[in-house]
Design a protein around this nucleic acid. Structure first.
Lengths: 335, 335
DNA sequence: TTAAATTAGGTAAACGTTTAAGCAAATAAA
DNA sequence: TTTATTTGCTTAAACGTTTACCTAATTTAA
C-alpha cells in the first residue's frame, strides 16, 4: 500500500513516520500524507507491523465457558479496556478441559498475543503449560479461577467470606442441615468456598459432614445433575443448599420441583450466580452476586499497566473484590 | 527461531517445508526436523507466516452484546468450528452502536482477519462500511441480525413464522389484546417478527393497532424499561405480551409484579429468549427458543467452506433454521 | 564568518516466514 | 549407454512495516 502512497513521491519511510506522527517529519508533509492515506482508504497491515515491532496489539481471553453470566459480564469489563487501548481480543474456550487449555497455551507462546487474561479450567493440576508461557515472557493475569501456584497478578472475589456469609445466612434462617453442591475439579475458589462454609458451621458448633458435600459434573448434562441431586436430597435430606456454580441453580430448582419440595419452606437455596433472572425465579433466588464486570475490567487494567511498561510487580498484585449476598425469597422464612 | 533450528545444518527452507509436510523433503529429514523442533519448543511466528501467506487464520465475530444467552450460545457454535479448523477468533462488541461498528469495520479491512461472522447493530442503517469490506475481498456471513441489503450468506431463524406461532398461541389461550414489545432500531428480524404478529391477528380478524406496539431502549437501563412497560400496560391494558428480545423478559415480569398483575391469569407472556432459567421462573416462561448454537455453527461452516475455496455463491446462501415455541405456564390457562 | 546544531527527509536492513526457481545426485526410460 | 525424470535440498526474493543511521539544507551560536 505504501508503494501506492508514493503518489506523493516521498519515501516509504516518510509515510510510515508521518502516520506515526514522528518528529522527523514536517507538519505540512504530515498533513499531506494523512490526507491522502484517508483518501486512498489506506489501512496499515497489522501483521507486517506486528512482525517488525514484535508486539501484536492483541490479548487472549482464556475462559472455561462463555454461556455463563459471570464470564460474559467479565468479558464486557475486559472489552471496555481493550477497546479503549485500541487492542484486540482473541477468545479461547477451554470447556473446562485441561488438555484443551494446554494445547492453546502451546500455541500462545508463539507471540500471537502480548498478554493473557484467564480463568483456569477446573481440572487443571499440572501448570507447566502456564510456566512455559511465563518463561516466554508473556504476562498473564488470572481472574476468578486463579492458579495460586503461579506467581502473577490475580483478581479474585472473596470466596471464603461470601460462602461464610451465605452459610451463616442459611443458619440464621433456621437451617440445620446444609448441603454444599460443587463440581468436580480442583479450582481453588471452590476450595475457598468450602472452607467458608465449614467455618460458618464450626462457629455454630455444627460438625462438618462429608456426606453433605456433593459433586456434580461440570459437563452441563442437566438431566444427570438433576438425578445426582435428587439422589443426594433423598439420602441426606438437607434443609438448605448452597450451589457454588451458576448452572447448578436450574438443576437444583428442578430437582426440588420433581421431588415436590417447596423452596423455601422445605429447603432453602442460595447460589453463586450473576444471572439477571434471579429476581424473577420461582421463588426469587438468593444469590451471591460477584463483581464480574469489575473483575474483568480490573484484570485488563493490570495487564495493560504492565504492558505499557509501568513497573508492576505482577506477582504482588492480589486483588480481592467483594461479592454481595442478595437475599431473596428462596431463603426467606415464610410465615 | 529457524536459525536456531540450524543445529541440523540444513537450510531454513528445509525446515519450513518439513514442518509443512512438503513432498520436497525426505521422510528421514522430516522426522529429524519435527523432533528437534519439538525439543526446542519451536512455535512458528504467526505474524511472519500471515504476512507472507497473506492470510491470517483468524476470523472476527462481531456482535452487539455478549451478556445474552443467544449470542453466547451462538459463539459456542462458532467456536466449535473455529477450533476444528485451527483458526482463531477475535471478538468485537458493538454495543448496538453503528458508530462503533463502522469504526471496527474500518480496522478490519486491513487483512487482520480472513472473514467475518456478524450480527448487525440494531441502529445500523448506512451499510457502506460493510460494502467497503466486501470490496476489500473479505467474506462476511450474517447470522440472526442480518442485513438484507448486503449480498452475502445469511443464517436466520424463521422470525416471521415464530412470531406468528407465538401470537396464534396467545390467541388460542384466549388473549384478545396482545402487545408487542420491541426495541428501538431497524433490525430486519424485528420487522419480520412484527409482520408475523400482524398476520396472526389478521387471520382472526383482529385489527392491528399501533398503540399495541411499544419500543424499549436497547441500552439496558432496566428501571427505565420497567417504567415504560408499566405506563404502556396501564394505558393499553393488554392481556398478552410478546417480548421480542431476551432482556425484556425480566423487565416484563417485574413490571407485572409491581402492578400486581398475575401471569398468566391477568396477562400472558411469551418471550424470544434462550435463557436456561426460563423453566424455573415464576411462572415458567413460554419462550421462542432459537437454535443459537446451530446458527453459529452453520454460519462458521459456510464461512470456512468459502475460505477453503469450495465454490459457494455466498449471496445465494440464505439459510433459515427453525425456532421452537416452548409452552410453559406463563401462557397456560390456569383453572 | 565559520562551526555547531537542528530540521526534514532518504536508504537500507530487519522482523520470521513461504515459495518459486534452480541444481546436483540418484533413478528410470530409451 | 545416453537421456529424461525424479528426489531432496538450497538460494534468494518477497510479504509490508519500522527504525537505526546518513545526508543535505537550513538555522543558530560563537
Amino acid at each position: 500500500m505504501k508503494t501506492l502512497a508514493k503518489v506523493l513521491n516521498v519515501s516509504i519511510a516518510t509515510i510510515s513516520k508521518a502516520l506515526r506522527d514522528s518528529h522527523d517529519i514536517g507538519d505540512e508533509t504530515k498533513q499531506r500524507v494523512i490526507e491522502t492515506a484517508r483518501l486512498l482508504h489506506y489501512v496499515p497491515n497489522p501483521y507486517a507491523s506486528s512482525l517488525r515491532k514484535r508486539s501484536s496489539n492483541t490479548i487472549a481471553i482464556v475462559i472455561p465457558e462463555i454461556a455463563d453470566s459471570f464470564f460474559s459480564q467479565a468479558i464486557n469489563g475486559i472489552e471496555s479496556i481493550v477497546d479503549q487501548e485500541n487492542y484486540h481480543a482473541l477468545i479461547y474456550l477451554t470447556h473446562d478441559s485441561y488438555e484443551r487449555e494446554a494445547k492453546m497455551f502451546n500455541d500462545l507462546t508463539s507471540g500471537r498475543v502480548d498478554g493473557i487474561l484467564m480463568s483456569v479450567a477446573s481440572n487443571t493440576k499440572d501448570i507447566s503449560h502456564i510456566q512455559n508461557l511465563q518463561q516466554a515472557g508473556i504476562p498473564i493475569v488470572f481472574f476468578d479461577r486463579v492458579c495460586e501456584d503461579v506467581p502473577t497478578a490475580k483478581i479474585k472475589t472473596d470466596d471464603f467470606n461470601s460462602a461464610y456469609v451465605a452459610t451463616s445466612h442459611l443458619l440464621d434462617q433456621g437451617c440445620k442441615n446444609i448441603s454444599l453442591v460443587t463440581i468436580e475439579g480442583y479450582p481453588s475458589i471452590l476450595y475457598a468456598r468450602k472452607e467458608g462454609y465449614k467455618k460458618a458451621l464450626a462457629e455454630r458448633g455444627i460438625k462438618y459432614d462429608e456426606q453433605h458435600e456433593i459433586s456434580c459434573s461440570n459437563k452441563y448434562t442437566q438431566e444427570n445433575n438433576i438425578a445426582v441431586l435428587k439422589d443426594h436430597i433423598a439420602k441426606v435430606k438437607p434443609d438448605g443448599i448452597i450451589a457454588t456454580v451458576e448452572h447448578l441453580a436450574t438443576s437444583t430448582y428442578l430437582a426440588c420441583e420433581e421431588m415436590k419440595l417447596n423452596i423455601p419452606q422445605d429447603i432453602k437455596v442460595v447460589c453463586f450466580t450473576n444471572q439477571i433472572t434471579a429476581a424473577i425465579l420461582n421463588p426469587p433466588l438468593t444469590t451471591i452476586l460477584q463483581p464480574a464486570y469489575e473483575m474483568g475490567r480490573k484484570a485488563a487494567e493490570l495487564l495493560f499497566w504492565h504492558l505499557s511498561g509501568k513497573f508492576i510487580q505482577m506477582e504482588k498484585e492480589n486483588i480481592i473484590l467483594p461479592s454481595k449476598l442478595v437475599v431473596r425469597d428462596s431463603t426467606r422464612i415464610s410465615d
